[in-house]
């Protein structure tokens, strides 16, 4: 890796457990400012747990989580969000009986509900959300809900956006659109750490990738190189 300086996010030898089950086994990854990193791996390889550890939903028994050079391992989730993390959770997890507008507001909870330019930015990215702003989030279609989830995460002006399976449950045409939007978000300067099953798609847009297997790092490198990697192709890309 030729990226210099302190990484924006660094997981340093993290061991995470669910009860007695050892999930992440000494995992170390890093994401630099403005970088687009994807996290690949089969089922139960610890991808989502990596995101949970990053956000502080679970805390590692050993190892450290550093954000912007600061050790946030023992800090609560809200602190990390305030420092500039945001997440598009798996299955979106919108607040169904609340309107699109209220959902977006909740994304900027720590900023007091969002300033006008935050809304403008999100509506600029997703013009449809402006039309739907008074509609209950639960009544939107899957693709629209994904937009709300993205918009909600972007409301707090994150430095690092975590995404858990952004293409899950979307029609193929929407998956492509989704990744265009992700690229757009990335170009606006937000660092991305994306967990994705659709390895082809993820590697075609990401800068770097990590491959996990049963909680261990098995492969890392440039996305373009990973896409050509023999074992990976056999294991996940189906080519």
């Amino acid at each position: 890796m030729s990226v210099n300086g302190t990484p924006l996010l660094q997981l340093d030898g993290c061991d995470t457990y669910y009860g007695q089950i050892h999930i992440l086994q000494g995992l170390s990854i890093e994401v630099h400012a403005g970088e687009f990193v994807c996290l690949l791996g089969g089922n139960a390889s610890g991808k989502s747990t990596t995101l949970k550890t990053t956000l502080g939903i679970v805390s590692p028994r050993r190892g450290r989580v550093l954000f912007g050079g600061e050790d946030v391992t023992r800090r609560p989730t809200s602190y990390r969000i305030q420092k500039g993390m945001a997440i598009v959770p798996e299955n979106r997890r919108l607040f169904a009986p609340m309107t699109v507008l209220e959902n977006l507001e909740m994304g900027a909870y720590l900023q007091g509900g969002g300033a006008k330019d935050d809304f403008d930015r999100v509506y600029g990215l997703f013009p449809l959300l402006y039309e739907r702003r008074a509609q209950l989030a639960g009544t939107l279609s899957g693709g629209e809900q994904q937009m709300v989830a993205m918009g909600r995460a972007l409301m707090g002006k994150p430095k690092l956006l975590l995404m858990d399976e952004p293409s899950m449950g979307l029609a193929p045409i929407l998956v492509e659109r989704q990744f265009e939007i992700i690229k757009e978000v990335h170009q606006s300067g937000v660092a991305l750490l994306v967990v994705e099953q659709n390895a082809n798609m993820a590697l075609s847009v990401a800068d770097r990738g990590y491959v996990l297997s049963t909680g261990r790092l098995v492969l890392q490198g440039k996305a373009s190189e990973l896409a050509e990697h023999e074992d990976l192709r056999k294991a996940y890309l189906g080519r």
């Binding site: 809200s78 969000i81 305030q82 919108l94 169904a96 609340m98 209220e102 909740m106 994304g107 909870y109």
Partner: peptide, 24 residues
């Protein structure tokens, strides 16, 4: 107010509320 909406989101989905950085 913001607190009322935060309560509602907490009721709907505590994990999502936490993920949004709300002091649950």
């Amino acid at each position: 107010s913001r607190i009322g909406r935060a309560w509602r989101s907490l009721r709907e989905d505590p994990l999502a509320a936490e993920l949004m950085g709300m002091p649950v």
